[in-house]
């Protein structure tokens, strides 16, 4: 069996499917635009009953994995592998959450692109026949990200106008060769792209070139154009980043129209004081595993191009004055056909 591959895109012929999904969010996201779609909202406690925010993030991943496995009507023994990642140093949230599951675990890191990275890798492993069912999950928490990357929570500072708000939430998907659900058709793996932005408060601008690069490669590899998709969804470019992406794509001869949306822009309401919009691994993970999956399952969306972007920086690299490299991975998911 030869796997069809074109440049950076891998095509799946054995139809890996997303047979279960789950999203869990904190109080602020629960008041946002998508409150009707999330699987679980913790309305009043962003500590999830834990002592620290780091522990709370682990609980979110555990619950997301649990929920997705239940949603797929499988037992723990049926899951062959857990693939997860997050933003914290040494991806502690994922690894510590995996500790409570008796399932082999692989940690992945792609900053905020982790959800798509995990989906794409899972689809490859499942399609290749190495595993029949894989659970992927990612999470982010506003308070843990602030502590690691920015300032203490109670510091009375003003946020720069280009900054984004890290989503408190986790999402999980079960990718399997068996069962039924939206199919993953192909995956495009992106290159690390750096256009020399060193403002850590302007992630949208740092990640937009990577998004453009992956998107253009994807359209070329698959011989498609933006209008072939019901929805082109980016992870967390935010308001500024999306506008830049639209400009950059236009430069390359592709026009992103009304079917282009950004998770960071739709998750919160305008009056929630989030500036450019949501960000973090949890942003794309929760948006995809709520409204998008519902619409893929109902057949409202037939073909969705889901691309998450990540900024591959650390606090050390940014304090040493390095620029912010970006990455973007994409998967194409086909909605369930209703006969």
């Amino acid at each position: 069996m030869k796997i069809r591959r074109q440049n950076q895109t891998v095509f799946f012929k054995n139809e890996p499917k997303i047979i279960g999904h789950y999203s869990i969010v904190g109080p602020k996201e629960g008041k946002g635009n998508l409150r009707k779609y999330f699987s679980e909202i913790n309305k009043d406690d962003d500590l999830f009953g834990q002592k620290t925010y780091e522990k709370a993030e682990r609980v979110m991943i555990e619950r997301a994995l649990d929920g997705a496995i239940k949603d797929s009507n499988l037992k723990y023994d049926d899951i062959r592998l857990v693939m997860a990642g997050d933003l914290l140093n040494q991806i502690i949230s994922s690894s510590y959450a995996a500790r409570s599951f008796d399932i082999p675990y692989v940690g992945v890191f792609g900053a905020c692109s982790t959800m798509v990275e995990a989906l794409a890798l899972s689809a490859c492993l499942v399609d290749g026949g190495h595993f029949d069912t894989i659970a992927c999950a990612t999470s982010s928490h506003f308070s843990t990200a602030e502590r690691q990357f920015r300032f203490p929570l109670e510091l009375g500072n003003q946020r720069p106008p280009t900054s984004q708000w890290t989503v408190t939430g986790a999402g999980s998907d079960i990718v399997s060769i068996k069962g039924s659900g939206p199919k993953i058709l192909c995956a495009t793996f992106g290159k690390v792209t750096d256009y020399g932005i060193n403002d850590v408060n302007n992630m949208g601008a740092a990640m937009a070139p990577a998004a453009m690069n992956t998107l253009v490669t994807h359209f070329k590899d698959t011989n498609t154009s933006p209008k072939d998709y019901d929805l082109i969804l980016t992870g967390d470019l935010g308001k500024l980043g999306s506008e830049i992406l639209i400009d950059l794509m236009e430069d390359k001869g592709y026009k992103l129209g009304l079917n282009y949306k950004d998770c960071g822009q739709i998750i919160f309401k305008r009056n929630q004081d989030v500036l450019m919009g949501g960000s973090g691994c949890g942003c794309s993970a929760t948006v995809f595993n709520s409204i998008i999956m519902k619409k893929l399952l109902s057949g409202e969306y037939k073909k969705v191009l889901f691309m998450a972007t990540g900024a591959l920086l650390s606090t050390t690299s940014s304090q040493q004055g390095d620029t912010v490299p970006g990455i973007a991975h994409a998967v194409v998911v086909e909605g369930v056909k209703n006969e």
């Binding site: 106008p161 750096d194 256009y195 020399g196 601008a205 500024l240 830049i244």
Partner: peptide, 19 residues
């Protein structure tokens, strides 16, 4: 590449809504 990055940075700078 440096030229491209310089142009991109200038473009982003102009794109940011002035406070």
């Amino acid at each position: 590449e440096q030229e491209r990055n310089k142009r991109y940075n200038a473009y982003v700078e102009a794109k940011i809504a002035k406070t």
